[in-house]
Design a protein around this nucleic acid. Structure first.
Length: 482
RNA sequence: GGCUCCGUCGCCAAGUGGUAAGGCAAGGGUCUGCAAAACCCUUAUUCCCCGGUUCGAAUCCGGGCGGAGCCUCCA
């Protein structure tokens, strides 16, 4: 059984076979950068990041393209409010976005084209569509795509033109022949960024950019086009219509992209989280209080196509869980140091990869990891001296855990360092002063030496009231924030 | 109204025809000066409801009920 992916076009899981054996072209619709990234972005791009990581782990050479939409109505509007240059503002939010995605452990794409830098391809593509009769310029500076010329229009979203007609509307000032037609090029309005074109100065419509950028960076057909569920219609549907019309004599959607994948939403109180509803968390806000890897762990706990109902408590749980994982790794590393590695790859690591083969089932992998970690702790805590075999097995565990973790984008930090970072953050969150804790621990150590357990327990209780939990171990007392 | 999707233990969540993973929480235990951590044990004869198909269904089909999304910008 090879890699199975859920293809929105097929409506089911299909076996994945790249167009060119051994190579994968992946295009992910990137953000429109008019504000900081929110949790929904993190969810989405973490999901596709796992896809990239796993395909690469399966020895496929992946070319990962993810655009920035930096020319858009919302950007122009927001920049006007702030009295900023729209492209410059977009560039700033793009940087902010990359910073956030780095923080949740996402690999950078191989190519990250921007609309503002892709104008020649966009204009050229529109020109081809006009030439072939799929697009028309009514003379007001706009260019529209004629959806009725494309027989497969709406197939991805399982919509037909008549279903769509009821909800369609035409803005005043547009000169569409059909209400469902959409703009490929918008004639410039005063004060807006504009580029030259055969139809006059203007800027691209929303959908054409992605078509142009995929064709420029991946060619056609390419393997996987991915994005949020909300893009199925109209964005991806329109992309298919444009692209296939431009490149495919038979107007076949599959001549553009072979597979379409879509991630589910983050919800707050069972409702879609979105900028327009105003119920969103920015990644930056969340990361001020919580570890980026913890957020990633939380996101990986739900299959990428399912909705995640987010709450702050869940993120706290994930952070504690991350602490457990790193504590286990630290323990295993300590015991296994210098041991001869058990040469056999753990069955559970193989099982994890198989689970990822099945439409990237990260939640199942976390279940598998949980059992492996429990077993590792049991082995590490077992009484008696560790044999070389025991230690080699723990070395194996740690290696495989990091290797599976690499496909999920977690557990790549040095364990002790990660634990210190988690503790520092948790202490800051609770307003705990580490120096004070250390001082109290020293006092308590003295009391314990004197067998003054009354005083010792008083310190424990005092710190516990602050949220500090003490752990007495063979090599002294350590502390953590509960 | 049309089109998608979802409903699994108190909470989170896999599983989509072969007899319910995992995490959190809870209870009991081992360990500990006491704890904490870790580990062990316990906790869904049952998967929203009602029919049907099948030797067999949480998984397939039909009908309800409940929730979400898209059809307008959105990851």
């Amino acid at each position: 059984m090879g890699i199975q992916i859920h293809d929105t076009m097929a409506g089911e899981k299909v076996e994945f076979h790249p167009v060119v054996p051994g190579q994968v072209g992946l295009y992910v619709c990137g953000p429109t950068v008019y504000d900081h990234a929110h949790l929904g972005h993190a969810r989405c791009y973490v999901a596709w990041d796992v896809v990239v990581r796993h395909l690469r782990a399966r020895e496929l050479v992946v070319k990962y393209v993810r655009n920035f939409t930096d020319v858009d109505d919302k950007i122009i509007a927001r920049a006007a409010e702030r009295g900023e240059d729209p492209i410059a503002m977009a560039a700033r939010f793009a940087d902010s976005f990359l910073e956030d995605m780095d923080a949740v452990g996402c690999l950078r794409p191989d190519v990250a084209p921007r609309v503002s830098g892709s104008m020649p391809g966009i204009v050229d593509l529109i020109g081809r569509l006009v030439e072939k009769g799929f697009a028309y310029a009514p003379g007001n500076g706009d260019v529209y795509y004629a959806v009725r010329k494309f027989p497969a229009y709406g197939r991805l979203a399982r919509r037909n033109l008549d279903d769509l007609l009821s909800g369609a509307r035409v803005d005043p000032g547009e000169s569409k022949r059909d209400p469902l037609d959409f703009a490929l090029w918008k004639g410039a309005k005063p004060g807006e960024p504009a580029w030259d074109s055969p139809w006059g100065k203007g800027r691209p419509g929303w959908h054409i950019e992605c078509s142009a950028m995929t064709l420029e960076h991946l060619g056609a057909p390419f393997d996987i086009h991915a994005g949020g569920k909300d893009l199925v219609f109209p964005h991806h549907s329109n992309e298919i219509a444009q692209s296939a019309a431009a490149i495919s004599g038979r107007l076949a959607p599959e001549d553009f992209a072979r597979h379409w994948m879509h991630n589910g939403f983050v919800e707050i109180d069972q409702e879609k989280m979105s900028k327009s509803l105003g119920n969103f968390f920015t990644v930056k806000d969340l990361l001020r209080l919580h570890d980026g890897e913890a957020l990633r762990l939380l996101l990986l706990g739900t299959h990428y196509r399912h909705p995640i109902n987010f709450s702050d408590g869940l993120l706290g749980d994930a952070e504690r869980r991350l602490g457990y994982l790193y504590e286990t790794l630290e323990k295993a590393d300590r015991i296994a140091e210098g041991a001869a590695l058990d040469p056999v790859v753990s069955p559970w690591a193989e099982g994890s990869r198989t689970a990822l083969d099945d439409d990237f089932n990260t939640a199942a992998v976390l279940g598998i990891l949980a059992e492996a970690f429990t077993a590792a702790n049991a082995a590490a805590d077992r009484k008696g001296k560790k044999t070389p075999t025991d230690r080699g097995a723990l070395a194996r565990f740690a290696l495989d855990a990091r290797s599976v973790g690499a496909e999920l984008g977690i557990l790549q930090r040095e364990a002790g360092e990660a634990l210190r970072a988690l503790r520092t953050r948790a202490a800051a969150r609770r307003g705990i002063d580490p120096a004070l804790v250390e001082a109290r621990i020293a006092e308590r150590a003295e009391a314990r030496r004197a067998k003054d357990f009354g005083r010792s327990d008083a310190v424990r209780d005092e710190l516990l009231a602050l949220g500090v939990v003490l752990q007495d171990g063979a090599s002294g007392t350590t502390w953590k924030v509960e």
